[in-house]
């Protein structure tokens, strides 16, 4: 009975940070981060970049994670991503030519709002654009072509690794950006699927709890900092959109398309909510 009450009070806490009609990203951000700081007062802020391993009560999972971090299973994929990044196009140029600062220390500003195309742009979109502008074929068909998606994830992982430790800083100052942010936020809080879960149910209400006794749930604070990531279960680097797809499938909801506007906006919202946290991608995950 006591448990029920604790649970109910946890749930109502989360209800307290439910979105209001007014769009005010900065106020949302404060509420969102304060929620986790209060929920997990012993966790230092930067630790949230380590996903579920940062949370109290999951020490045995963390110990195991530290062990695989000694020889990270994603190293091979990351080195293939580095090779793809460095291999010259047919015209002799490389990816570095398409990015500010040769691509170093810039990923903390991704995804970003692009006022010219009126869309949120992800690192994947800029990498693919770079390929097209240089007469190369982009990574495509990412929902169906597992091999292309994994090769892309390796490249994106290398791109993010060049900004490791940089703190997320997302610009939501323009009205268009706020609209995209609102769109992502709506998706985050909405219940869906036959099992009727919102993202917020698992990654806020139930953060730190253990589903089924062997699948702990991460806090949303820190989401996106580690991606592309490699799960033991997958045995390969994967994109954040693939993570979204699998989270949607778990609750028997129809997943959205890899690279769809809605997932871009969700990623924009989630990344903004983790503002200030250091990038750790790529990383190992359960």
């Amino acid at each position: 009975m006591k448990k029920i009450f604790i649970l109910l009070s946890i749930l109502s806490l989360a209800a307290g940070v439910m979105p209001t009609a007014m769009a005010d990203p900065a106020a949302d951000l404060k509420k969102f981060q304060d929620y986790f700081k209060k929920r997990f007062p012993t966790v230092p802020f930067d630790e949230f970049s380590n996903g579920m391993y940062a949370l109290p009560g999951l020490e045995s999972y963390r110990d195991q994670w530290m062990l695989y971090n000694e020889f990270p299973p994603y190293e091979l994929g990351l080195s293939l991503g580095k090779k793809a990044w460095e291999t010259p196009f047919k015209n002799g140029k490389t990816f570095a030519s398409c990015f500010k600062n040769g691509g170093k220390n810039i990923a903390q500003g991704y995804p970003y709002w692009d006022g010219t195309t009126n869309k949120v742009r992800t690192a994947e979109m800029d990498l693919n654009d770079c390929l097209k502008r240089n007469g190369e074929s982009p990574y495509a068909d990412l929902d169906k072509d597992l091999e292309a998606r994994v090769r892309f994830a390796q490249l994106v992982a290398y791109f993010y690794s060049m900004s490791a430790g940089q703190r997320l800083k997302i610009d939501v100052s323009s009205p268009g950006a706020v609209k995209a942010y609102e769109d992502g936020k709506k998706f985050w809080w909405q219940r869906r699927g036959q099992l009727n879960f919102a993202c917020a149910n698992c990654h806020m209400d139930l953060a730190g709890k253990n589903l089924g006794g062997n699948q702990p749930l991460s806090a949303a604070l820190g989401h996106t900092t580690a991606w592309p990531a490699q799960r033991l279960e997958w045995g390969r680097l994967e994109t954040i959109h693939f993570r979204y797809i699998t989270c949607n499938q778990q609750i028997r909801a129809k997943p959205m398309k890899h690279g769809s506007d809605i997932y871009n906006n969700l990623q924009f919202y989630e990344t903004y909510m983790s503002s200030g946290l250091p990038l750790t991608a790529p990383a190992m995950r359960n």
């Binding site: 099992l195 589903l211 089924g212 006794g213 062997n214 699948q215 279960e233 699998t246 499938q249 778990q250 609750i251 028997r252």
Partner: peptide
């Protein structure tokens, strides 16, 4: 076939 993806052993 799993929901919630819980791989319970």
């Amino acid at each position: 076939a799993t929901w919630l993806g819980v791989a319970a052993f």
